[in-house]
Simulated assay, not measured.
Amino acid sequence: MATTSVRRSSSLNSHLHKTALGVFLFIVIAHWAEHIAQAVQVYLLDWPLPQARGVLGIPFPWLVTSEWMHYGYALVMLAGFIALRKGFTGSSRTWWNVALGIQVWHHFEHFLLLMQNLSGLHLLGKPVPTSLIQLLLPRMELHLLYNAIVFVPMVVAMILHRRPRSADRDAATCTCAVAFAH
Rank of each mutant, 00 (worst) to 15 (best):
T3I: 14
R7W: 14
L12Y: 05
N13M: 07
H15P: 00
H17F: 15
L21D: 08
G22H: 05
V23G: 04
F24S: 06
F26Y: 08
I27W: 04
V28D: 04
A30Y: 03
A30N: 02
H31A: 08
W32C: 03
A33T: 09
Q38R: 15
Q38W: 11
Y43D: 06
L44W: 13
L44F: 13
L44Y: 09
L45K: 07
L45F: 15
W47P: 01
P48W: 00
L49A: 10
L49R: 13
P50I: 13
R53L: 13
G54S: 09
G54N: 08
V55Q: 04
P61M: 07
L63E: 01
T65F: 02
A74W: 10
L75Y: 07
L75V: 11
M77W: 14
L78I: 07
L78P: 00
I82H: 04
I82D: 07
A83F: 05
R85G: 12
K86M: 06
F88C: 08
F88R: 02
F88A: 09
T89V: 09
G90Q: 06
R93L: 15
T94L: 14
W96N: 05
N97F: 03
V98I: 15
V98Q: 07
L100Y: 09
I102K: 07
Q103R: 04
H106T: 10
H106I: 14
H106R: 09
L114A: 00
G120D: 06
L123T: 11
P127G: 05
P129H: 08
T130G: 05
S131L: 03
L132N: 02
I133A: 11
L136M: 13
L136W: 12
L137P: 04
H143V: 01
I149Q: 01
I149F: 02
V152N: 00
P153W: 14
V155Y: 01
V156N: 04
M158V: 14
M158H: 07
L160M: 08
R165A: 15
D170H: 13
A171R: 03
A172K: 11
T173Q: 06
C176D: 15
A177F: 04
V178H: 11
A179W: 12
F180S: 03
F180M: 04
